[in-house]
């Protein structure tokens, strides 16, 4: 499966109550890119990505999903292109069993019954919920319900996947699982967009980061460069990942994004000092 390009053109969005949550956003994402959107609560991150599946339509400007303008397509049509995992799983889950919930998406897209079942089983295996397939979603814990919602979107095989805060409420194993899912989707060439407050997770799994403040994009670039921008991040109230903060305190001019990079750089400095 290949990804699909996305484009926001000078998008503004004003809620009916009058709050202008998006104030002129232009953003292009290439097929197969993996992008993290970060920023304070209320910066407009969720409002922005809700334009991708057509829940919201721009007040001004345009959003392109592949060759479609979202203004010309409804949520049901866009669902074939954009899989969207809500921040709150309870906005998404409604069926009486985990399996039925996960099958709902592909079935609704017109996928044949055997294929739907196969995909649901595969998705449940990916998120580690095979044993819970017959449970009622509301008898599961919040972290499990979030994984059901994720499985439901995975089963739809959409070229674009959007996840709003996928790691909240997950333990270390759950966060690793979400990371593996993202790596697999990316390896598959799909376009992945994630909203997250977990900067350590962000550093370890994303090559591009978009920083939002106040309904606008404050910074957009490759992860290492973005996390090196101390002042811009402070302005956006984004705290760099732990290892980047450590490297800054140690006076390094290099921002390690994961443990391997950190230790590698440590070892290099040491051998240079000895040599």
């Amino acid at each position: 499966m290949t990804g699909m390009p996305l484009r926001f053109e000078e998008v503004h969005y004003r809620y009916p109550a009058g709050v202008e949550a998006i104030r002129g956003v232009s953003l292009a994402i290439e097929p197969g890119e993996r992008v993290a959107i970060v920023g304070q609560n209320g910066a407009g991150k969720t409002t922005l990505v809700r334009h991708l599946n057509g829940i919201l339509k721009p007040t001004v400007g345009a959003v392109h999903v592949g060759d479609w303008l979202t203004a010309d397509h409804d949520i049901a049509e866009l669902a074939a292109r954009v899989g969207y995992v809500f921040q709150n799983p309870d906005e998404q889950l409604f069926a009486r069993s985990v399996q039925a919930d996960v099958e709902f998406g592909p079935r609704n897209l017109g996928v044949a019954p055997e294929e739907t079942t196969r995909r649901a089983e595969q998705a449940l295996a990916t998120v580690g919920l095979v044993e819970q397939r017959n449970a009622h979603p509301h008898h599961l814990s919040l972290s499990e319900r979030k994984r059901v919602a994720l499985a439901g979107v995975l089963a739809m095989h959409t070229p674009i996947v959007v996840l709003d805060e996928p790691t909240t409420g997950q333990d270390a194993a759950g966060i690793d699982m979400v990371g593996t899912v993202l790596d697999t989707l990316a390896a598959d060439g799909r376009t992945v967009i994630v909203i997250t407050h977990d900067m350590d997770f962000c550093a370890e799994h994303f090559r591009r980061v978009v920083v939002m403040t106040n309904g606008q994009i404050q910074a957009d670039g490759d992860t290492r460069t973005i996390f090196g921008l101390e002042e811009a991040l402070a302005e956006a109230a984004v705290e760099p990942p732990q290892l980047v903060r450590l490297s800054q305190r140690l006076g390094w001019e290099y921002s390690p994004l994961n443990t391997e990079e950190f230790v590698e750089y440590c070892a290099r400095r040491r051998s240079e000092r000895i040599g």
Binding site: D171, A172, I175, D200, P241, Q242, L243, L246, T259, E260, F262, V263, C266, A267, R270
Partner: peptide
Amino acid sequence: IGSTRYTRAARAAQDRGL
């Protein structure tokens, strides 16, 4: 439960003989 990145980095550094 996992551990902080500081602890993970120190463990990995120990494994490298640092």
